Simulated assay, not measured.
Amino acid sequence: MNHGISVLFRAIPLAMAAFCFAYGAYVYTAGDDPLRLTAGPVVFFLGSICMALYCTAATIIRQIVGTYTETAKYIFPAIGYSFALATIICGVFILTSQTSGSLVTGHVVCGLGLITVCVATAATASSRFSLIPRNSADASFSINPQGFTIGQSVTLIGIVSATALAAWVWCILLFVRGTLPAHIVAGSVMFGIACICTSLIALVASIARQIRGSYSMREKSKWSSLVITMGSLAFILGIVLLIVLRSQTINFVGFVLFGLALICWSISSKVILLAKIWHTEFPLANRIPIIPVITALACLFLAAFLFEATDFAHKYYVPARVLTGFGAICFTLYSIVSILESGASKK
């Protein structure tokens, strides 16, 4: 990877983060539509995920180009976790406020904070990414002493697993204890967020175990299937909600779930790539980055249709804007999987 490309792939997450922050702030402050109080903060805090993805990108690229330092080893995960903490705190603050739509907005923003925790953990797990090509070329399948210890590997996977579990419990509580339509909306979105967090378990586990050298051939399909399944579950629930709630204004949440499913499938590109190049040559590895490009375009095209639909059905105001932010997330994931392809497939 040359210097120009390395700068570009690091610039993409930053540009997408800037877009989310700017667009979210614009939506929040422009006009007097009460729905802007939901759409604005959600889009804004999607930028936190982009920043955590930037930390992952910078961590891997610096190892590829040979500029990774001991300071960078700690600073990038710290940045990611800082954005995660700030997002969760802001979500709690929104929940305790009495603004319009605060119940849905607060829960969703907290959920975005949980995703950011998982992505920051992926950045932490990538701190020894340069060992993956070396371990992949080792025909003995032995544990690399320079990689993570079993305790470190379990801790990294455990952090993401605990975060995903928290998201699932949060989702269940919203459905079981909720009494308002807003609880259905928040619970449904939290379902999609839990699917993303679960998908990130597969990513962190793949990275950590390949760095350690304990990634087995059986895991190739295991982790890939998990991510694809999570995306499919979110997509199916979206269809169900669109049909079951078709006579209600809250059925728009189905489109939000479509976007969350597309993010899961974007994550699958990274998990699939790591699986395909482990102890084997995969000539089509450089084609895998097209997956997040397709999902990003799908988000943007769907957002465009919903923007038009807003003219005669105002309920699409929020998903139209949120899907635009989801497109930014998917495009950011394109840069990450391209970096992975450049670094991990090099023997």
Rank of each mutant, 00 (worst) to 15 (best):
S266K: 08
S6E: 01
T149E: 02
T99Q: 14
S97E: 06
I250T: 02
S269N: 11
A11Y: 01
A72G: 15
D138N: 15
R177Q: 13
V109W: 10
S48P: 09
V204S: 05
S140E: 14
I75N: 11
Y215K: 05
Y215S: 04
R62V: 00
G231I: 00
L156P: 04
K315S: 14
I157Q: 12
A186P: 07
S100T: 06
F83P: 01
R218M: 11
S97L: 05
V108D: 09
I172T: 13
T179R: 15
F331Q: 05
L46N: 07
K347G: 09
A30V: 10
I267F: 14
E281C: 05
L273T: 07
L14H: 02
A166V: 09
T155I: 04
G4L: 11
I61S: 09
P13R: 15
F45Q: 01
S136G: 15
A304I: 03
R134C: 00
L35A: 10
A57F: 03
M1I: 08
V227D: 08
T116I: 09
I277P: 07
P13F: 15
C118Y: 06
A309L: 13
I60S: 03
V92E: 10
I150G: 02
R128Y: 13
T324D: 02
I89Q: 03
N2K: 12
I61L: 14
S216L: 13
V43P: 03
A296F: 14
H3E: 14
I157E: 11
V160M: 04
R177N: 13
V65C: 10
T105S: 13
I60W: 05
G47S: 06
G151L: 04
A202W: 03
F331G: 06
C20S: 12
T163R: 03
F21T: 00
T310N: 14
L53S: 07
P77C: 11
A18I: 08
I201G: 00
L257H: 04
V337N: 13
G106K: 04
I228L: 15
L241T: 01
R287E: 15
C330D: 13
A275N: 09
F312D: 12
A303Y: 08
Y23N: 05
S214W: 04
I115V: 15
G343N: 07
Y23P: 01
S206F: 04
Y23R: 11
F282Y: 15
S82G: 14
F307C: 00
V185D: 08
E281G: 02
S142N: 04
N286L: 08
T59L: 02
I250C: 04
F45A: 02
A234F: 09
I288C: 06
A123F: 06
A25R: 06
M217H: 07
C90G: 00
T229Y: 11
G47K: 05
C330I: 03
E70G: 00
F141N: 09
